[in-house]
Design a protein around this nucleic acid. Structure first.
Lengths: 342, 342
DNA sequence: CGCAGCCATACATACGTATTCACATACGTA
DNA sequence: TACGTATGTGAATACGTATGTATGGCTGCG
């Protein structure tokens, strides 16, 4: 039950002063190699670890980043967006490589988090992963900026891009997905996903869809456009609506994998075969996409790349560098659900 | 760019001394209500937030918990176990409710993390979520205990239960899953999953499987037992092996959902129908289980309950209470993959 | 030989809070 | 009036580190 050792204990054991211990451990070049070795040995021997609180207090930084998920009000506590979840692993690793710790937190859109983390020196910067209506949380971003907080967010660049933003090229992804379906000979391609400006990422995917169609000489047909969110039921609803409209579709580009899987289930129940009768492409490459049958063709936002970009951006910001936005490529992953059999 | 306010600034504004500010904000009863109100108003006005570093340094605690995933060595950085991922949301919420922050970290089994978090006062306690061979990380737990670290782990209780352990009743889950298959009239039930003692949770599920069979007067058949890990390919491999052995099975209890989904794919490729020809039950209730077709019957470990139990346990430990183990119930979720059509 | 210049280390201090102790005031009792 | 007690606040200090400044020993050059 003895007290944890401090830098003074190490100093005494190594026969130097406390400041020298601090310098030796932090790699300060003004300490000789021979002394440094002695200090390191002493630290090792006593199981010494720098006290992060004291260190942070002195340096006025915590070498910690806060990862903040925020979401619309939900009663039971909703699931985290699968893409954000896939960001988690790479993010933790990126942080660790750079000597930062990662704090994670959830916030309701309505709550008053603002810059608490930074104000309390609990974190040096914030990474925001928000879902839900962008228009609703936009005011929060404005407040962050006003208070001079260091933050980076994942989101769309085409919505005014408040604060440093890292984004995936959703428009290109939508274009590639649709082009792929066209290459498969499909002509009546439905779009499932909202075009609500509160969800600019979906809107971008839709724009890419339209561009691809027009590039092939096809004018987007309103009857093939089905509003819906990113849930599985949105897919089922969309199929019902398409059938009710007698829309005559031979492919579906769903702006989310969950919706795409919902579409597949609904078509299966109706006895229409995927991909023989209808080709499907999703978006996000969630784990379930690789496990569905048929396996889902989808557009992948590379989680490792995304994590790196977010961490790079926030660290640049913390070090006083300018905030530059970043647009990452989306990649089409062709699996079974879209391939028309000969 | 002005400096952040300190408790001295608040003190000056409220016309009291710094210690009074500290007392007022921490709810110390020795400060009068009238003074407290003045202090709170001043703090509000200046956007004051207690500096966590200074506070932590003084109190020698951080009001932070570390969530530590550790895993076998993998080259690219493997995915996090889906069940652990589902724990994340509820865990963050539980922490927040109790006024704690949550730090997350990954560690390779080989790395030397020990009690770094606690030694450096970065966290007051550690929650360990480990996967991979238990025998490999057991020595790490011993070292933690030896160093007097506060930690709780998720794992099996039937393996010696080193340290405070929260667990799901895997044996009962295996029993329920198998009983359900027996109720469906199945008699030749295969088991997919390892019985390696390094994976005691799988072993427990297998024991439950055996108990259910024997309760129905059936002696477990070795030819129906297929070793394999929790990956999707393990399911495919198992099916191949069963066929090669001519094992004549009409149901599969897979000790993980991923393996169960692998089994379904393999059977589908062989033209055998699920659930008409073969009934399937998985374990874990990962998101993809509810999305497969047919939707997978599985055994669920309640993530919210598990999170609460883990947080309760670690906080009890931190407050000096004794460490008691905790066994949570598993619940069978009946979906489509197991139901024999009439 | 003396002085400028450099290197390695020590001294002193500040970071912002929480807590121990002392103190002043007000009140009730003898 | 004198005294004990309860109550609310202030003064002083410690937590463990990082860093600006000072110091001592050394080399090299005139």
């Amino acid at each position: 039950m003895e007290r944890r050792p401090t830098s003074f204990d190490i100093a005494a054991l190594a026969g130097v002063s406390q400041p020298t211990v601090s310098r030796a451990l932090s790699g300060n070049p003004s300490v000789s190699e021979e002394t440094r070795a002695r200090v390191l040995a002493a630290a090792e021997q006593l199981n010494y670890k720098v006290d992060k609180n004291a260190s942070g207090l002195r340096r006025r930084s915590s070498r910690t980043l806060a990862l903040l998920f925020f979401e619309e009000e939900t009663p039971g506590g909703a699931l985290i967006n699968p893409f954000y979840l896939s960001l988690l692993g790479p993010m933790v690793r990126s942080c660790a490589e750079r000597g930062y710790d990662l704090l994670i937190s959830f916030q309701q859109l309505s709550s008053d988090w603002h810059v608490d983390y930074e104000d309390s020196h609990k974190a040096d910067g914030i990474i925001l992963l928000g879902y839900g209506d962008y228009l609703q949380y936009r005011p929060k971003l404005e407040k962050l900026i006003e208070r001079g907080a260091h933050f980076v967010r994942w989101g769309s660049l085409s919505d005014g891009a408040l604060g440093a933003t890292v984004s995936c090229d959703n428009e290109q992804g939508g274009f590639d997905a649709t082009s792929h379906l066209l290459q498969q000979g499909r002509r009546r391609i439905a779009f499932v996903g909202t075009v609500d400006p509160g969800y600019p990422e979906f809107l971008d995917r839709w724009k890419g869809y339209c561009r691809a169609l027009r590039a092939a000489g096809i004018e987007p047909d309103e009857r093939l456009q089905c509003d819906g969110d990113a849930a599985e039921v949105a897919g089922a609803t969309a199929v019902q609506r398409l059938i009710a409209r007698d829309a005559d579709f031979d492919a579906v580009f769903a702006a989310s994998d969950l919706a795409a899987i919902g579409v597949m289930h609904a078509l299966h129940a109706l006895g229409r075969s995927v991909p023989a009768d209808v080709s499907i492409v999703g978006f996000d490459n969630i784990p379930a996409a690789g496990l569905s049958s048929p396996r889902l063709t989808t557009v992948s936002q590379n989680p490792r790349q995304a994590s790196e970009a977010l961490i790079d951006a926030i660290l640049t910001l913390i070090e006083g560098g300018g905030a530059k936005n970043c647009l990452l490529p989306a990649r089409l992953i062709v699996r079974e659900s879209s391939i028309v059999p000969h």
